[in-house]
Design a protein around this nucleic acid. Sequence first.
DNA 1: AAGTGGTCTAGACCACTCT
DNA 2: GAGTGGTCTAGACCACTTG
Lengths: 243, 243
Amino acid sequence: MKSHIETNEPAGKRYEQIANQLRGAIVSGNWMVGHALPSEQQLAQDHQVAVGTIRQAVALLVEQGLVERVHGRGTFVRGVISGAGMLRFFRFGSQPDVLPRSFILSVKIQPASEKAAAALQIAPGSQTLYVMRLRQIQERPCLLEDIVLPLPRFQALGHAAPSQWGDFLYPAYERLCAVHVQHVTDTITFNRLTGAQAKRLELAKDHPCAKVERIAYDRLHSPVEWRVTRGDAHAFRYTNSIL
Amino acid sequence: MKSHIETNEPAGKRYEQIANQLRGAIVSGNWMVGHALPSEQQLAQDHQVAVGTIRQAVALLVEQGLVERVHGRGTFVRGVISGAGMLRFFRFGSQPDVLPRSFILSVKIQPASEKAAAALQIAPGSQTLYVMRLRQIQERPCLLEDIVLPLPRFQALGHAAPSQWGDFLYPAYERLCAVHVQHVTDTITFNRLTGAQAKRLELAKDHPCAKVERIAYDRLHSPVEWRVTRGDAHAFRYTNSIL
DNA sequence: AAGTGGTCTAGACCACTCT
DNA sequence: GAGTGGTCTAGACCACTTG
């Protein structure tokens, strides 16, 4: 035994330890979104290390998207991820300045299905908020979404009127439920519309559709939302760069 | 005028300048794939800067995927990108140890179409090597590819017998034509098969298909290959993480 | 044991933003 | 001008790989 004091920092690289501590302060909500971290000088003093070491620690957090450096101003806790909108998967003939509108078709409390439970890492049958949403551009319906949110975490959302949710959900999660979506995984497959789905999208039954299944995670990498989005396969277009 | 000596290093950050010089040595083929860069100490001396500055320069190249650090051994020029295989887009009932086979259906020299020319940034009508390839897993055809390669860069490939190309093309490009694919952009859309395509894939005409259009780039960010891959839409599955 | 990259220090000076 | 992050220096010592 090297020391009689139990330290729960299992040691390793100094900058990793510091990054972990900083991450803790962020994910615990101790430092809110937009909050400025202490200056590098300050952190170096606090942790009794050189500034360079602090810079390495912060670099890790930047890589993980938790934090953002701004030259001359400071380092800030990042908000909800950007560029996660479903519309990036589809090209509907919309000018960029035409914003899509959301229509909540239904909100129910119901037990999680097998698939939803697996995605959200909760017990099958747990209570969830189940939302159906239609998105349209210039009066034309284009995307149909089934959204499953675990309770009680999203209770506040259920209590608020859907009209108050707004056209984008992630900011609403943040505002009403203090849930910060930090990371998503999208799985794209191809399918055909059921009769009910086709009706909502004003397409024919069995029309080909692109299906995007998304799991959204918060800063602790806990899954917080499971979403299935369907749209016309012929409007689907997705570009990705690798390496 | 600050100096009467014309310098073609337009100046800026020292580590960027150095990174540019190193990049030049790599993309010019001066340092081949697998070649070890000089040690950080050596580079620091050569460029008359501190080691830390060299580390920043090399970090840039690592980010760009040009170079790879190995602790205790050195820094090495990276080869062809990995994980770019088309099969990652599809789930055919194949064990991971069953390797797909390639069949070259045809090789022709023909002028570039409008689309191919745009993708490859060459003049429409330029000479290209046009390859049709079928990939199959366990005797079952699954992917049909149209591949366009600019001439004269790929002349050596045209001269070699297709049987010598192997089951994977990028290593062949490297081996035969000294073309190093460094980066690709894939665009996914959904479509229907033409009669001819359907026949090759042993599916019905108008069967839904996933179409992946790829432009591959070398280390200079010049497009070197345009490829259109088609497969059964129902076998398509693609997962992507964002942020 | 010699050589490599990885971590860390303790500064200096520069570029940018805000007041 | 005061405070922030960005660049750069000139070292020390550690961890890993190879002969």
